[in-house]
């Protein structure tokens, strides 16, 4: 599948943003946050900024952004529509929570809880857009939803920990969430890649053509000499030869090195914590973008069975 830069940025930035909002809500709901205005401003600007950047980036992916508002109408059947509805809805508890915190000096626990739930639901809806597509076996798997949740948590919790390190907020549990997110993301991605390497596929050239009873099916002549939309969008192959290296970058930079930094910061409190955390955040961003690129580039679509693929 063609990795569109706008979609990679959207899912990476908003995934972390929603996870950070979820943690802000969760910590507030459990009553461990103090309504300090400065820390509140920074937290909301950061998380909502990431979320908004992601949403704007994803509408730029559209050919008719002026009609984007129509996308909230089909929530009964479409995960993309549900994602739109949930993404917009999340601004409501986020706004209420922020009003209480920033202007009235109160942490409204109920708003925090609602914010946390709707932010998590939004990440789930994003994941389900991909997980529900049967023609793309890699995505249509059990690992897609936990993958998006864990990777969102890894990024969001790292940002949240950095924020907690700088602001008057409880740090230990923030570190714990970051470590859990990073570890979970690493494991889930390893299982996901194992699924791909095991040759999981949705269909074969034989079932796509129905000619399997004659024997092995292979393409003799393509329908057209030049690339068409289908080949550009669904037949993307450029990055596949770098897949191994990119997987290593994603695993090391995205999850394992940040995890080591987080554990090092936990083991040696107050010694270079900030440097380690900034390093972890930067590495995680690089690894997340590499992973998201791979998520698209490695995913095979069944339409390629009509263009010479044996399995997809």
């Amino acid at each position: 599948m063609h990795p569109a830069l706008s979609v990679i940025l959207f899912t990476s930035a908003s995934g972390g943003g929603y996870a950070m909002l979820a943690l802000l809500g969760l910590f507030g709901a459990s009553g461990v946050l103090a309504p300090d205005p400065l820390s509140g401003w920074i937290a909301f600007l950061w998380s909502l900024g990431m979320v908004t950047f992601g949403l704007v980036s994803s509408t730029l992916h559209l050919s008719h952004p002026e009609r984007a508002w129509r996308a909230v109408s089909q929530w009964r059947t479409s995960w993309l529509s549900r994602e739109g509805v949930l993404a917009l809805f999340t601004f409501l508890p986020a706004g209420l929570y922020a009003i209480g915190w920033l202007f009235l000096g109160e942490i409204w626990r109920w708003a925090g809880a609602l914010l946390s739930l709707s932010a998590i639901a939004t990440i789930c809806a994003t994941a389900m857009i991909y997980a529900s597509l049967k023609p793309i076996r890699a995505w249509n798997s059990l690992w897609t939803l936990p993958g998006y949740l864990a990777m969102g948590l890894a990024s969001g919790a790292l940002w949240f920990t950095l924020w907690a390190e700088l602001m008057p907020a409880p740090q230990k549990p923030a570190y714990d969430f970051a470590a859990i997110g990073l570890l979970a993301a690493a494991f889930i991605k390893l299982f996901y890649w194992r699924l791909l390497d095991a040759g999981a596929h949705a269909a074969t050239a034989e079932s796509a053509t129905g000619l399997g009873h004659l024997g092995k099916v292979r393409l003799l002549a393509a329908p057209h000499t030049e690339e068409n939309y289908l080949l550009k969008e669904m037949g993307f192959r450029i990055a596949r030869k770098h897949a191994r290296k990119l997987r290593r970058i994603a695993l090391l930079a995205g999850f394992l090195l940040p995890l080591a930094a987080v554990l090092a910061a936990l083991a040696t409190p107050h010694v270079g914590d900030l440097v380690l955390l900034v390093l972890a955040v930067v590495l995680n961003a690089i690894g997340t973008i590499a992973e998201r690129w791979l998520f698209f580039a490695e995913a095979k679509h069944t339409v390629m069975l009509y263009y010479g693929a044996e399995r997809a």
């Binding site: 050239a205 092995k216 393409l219 003799l220 393509a222 057209h224």
Partner: peptide
């Protein structure tokens, strides 16, 4: 509408 040509069997 696109016309693909396949070989099947040996």
């Amino acid at each position: 509408n696109r016309i693909h040509s396949f070989e099947a069997g040996e």
